[in-house]
């Protein structure tokens, strides 16, 4: 119960820090929108083409820029802060789980903010869109966990915002495939469950990795 309360408080603290700094939602989100805007300039403004590649582009931007959301500066504990948390009896798993929860919520907001941008720019076919209600949280949770893991692995290193994503990107591949294929499968009348199951599996693997890896990744000095 104490651990749960600590987790909630840490997540709340992270969200409050983001609300004050705005790095994820006021900086990274517009940057992602710019990426969506650039692609038609490069490949041409052919409406059927853009309609076809729109959903895929949206997910590529969400995955790559989403990792930047998880590696935002306010999601870094300085050594004195880690020492403080440790001396308050906060377990490393609780600390990172709280961070992952906050990051997942921010990622969900990030995804939702980019949806209208992608719709406006690419006008994708609306088939299978209700499945997004499941896909968006699954991607946000998986990416939040992976990004937290990346942040812990690259903590305090030069180039952590580049090194971090490189370390965990492969596990984002099943998320990318699931996110793009599930609504596509539904649109074709197939059951998208296998893809959702795949994404859930990745989420669980990431959670397990965080659970087992966190105690090894906490350094104070």
């Amino acid at each position: 119960m104490t651990a749960w309360r600590q987790l909630v408080e840490i997540a709340r603290k992270d969200l409050r820090l983001e609300a004050r700094s705005g790095e994820a939602l006021l900086v990274t989100t517009p940057f992602g929108a710019v990426a969506l805007l650039f692609v038609p300039l490069a490949v041409g403004t052919d409406t059927p083409l853009l309609r076809g590649i729109g959903p895929g582009l949206y997910w590529v931007v969400v995955l790559l820029f989403g990792l930047l959301v998880t590696l935002r500066t306010s999601a870094v504990d300085t050594p004195p802060q880690i020492a403080l948390l440790r001396l308050c009896g906060v377990h490393s798993v609780v600390r990172l789980a709280g961070r992952a929860a906050a990051s997942a919520l921010l990622l969900l907001a990030f995804e939702l903010l980019l949806v209208p941008v992608a719709v406006a720019l690419y006008d994708p076919a609306p088939h299978g869109w209700p499945w997004l209600l499941v896909v968006l949280p699954l991607v946000a949770a998986g990416l939040g966990l992976l990004g937290t893991l990346a942040g812990a692995l690259a903590q305090g290193l030069d180039g952590r915002t580049t090194l971090g994503p490189v370390l965990v990107l492969p596990l984002a591949v099943p998320l990318l495939l699931g996110a793009t294929q599930a609504p596509a499968a539904a649109a074709l009348g197939h059951a998208p469950w296998p893809w959702l199951l795949l994404m859930l599996t990745v989420d669980l693997i990431a959670a397990l990795a965080l659970l087992l890896g966190a105690p090894h990744l906490e350094e104070v000095a």
């Binding site: 104490t2 309360r5 600590q6 408080e9 603290k13 409050r16 820090l17 004050r20 700094s21 306010s74 300085t78 004195p80 802060q81 020492a83 403080l84 948390l85 001396l87 308050c88 009896g89 906060v90």
Partner: peptide, 29 residues
């Protein structure tokens, strides 16, 4: 319990002083 006060204060710079201390209070129940 142990408390360590180092060269650099362990405060979250974007939180108010009250929020900082409330955070510590809640962490320790």
């Amino acid at each position: 319990p142990v408390a360590l006060l180092g060269h650099a204060p362990a405060l979250y710079s974007q939180l108010t002083l009250r929020e900082n201390l409330q955070f510590v209070a809640r962490m320790t129940g």
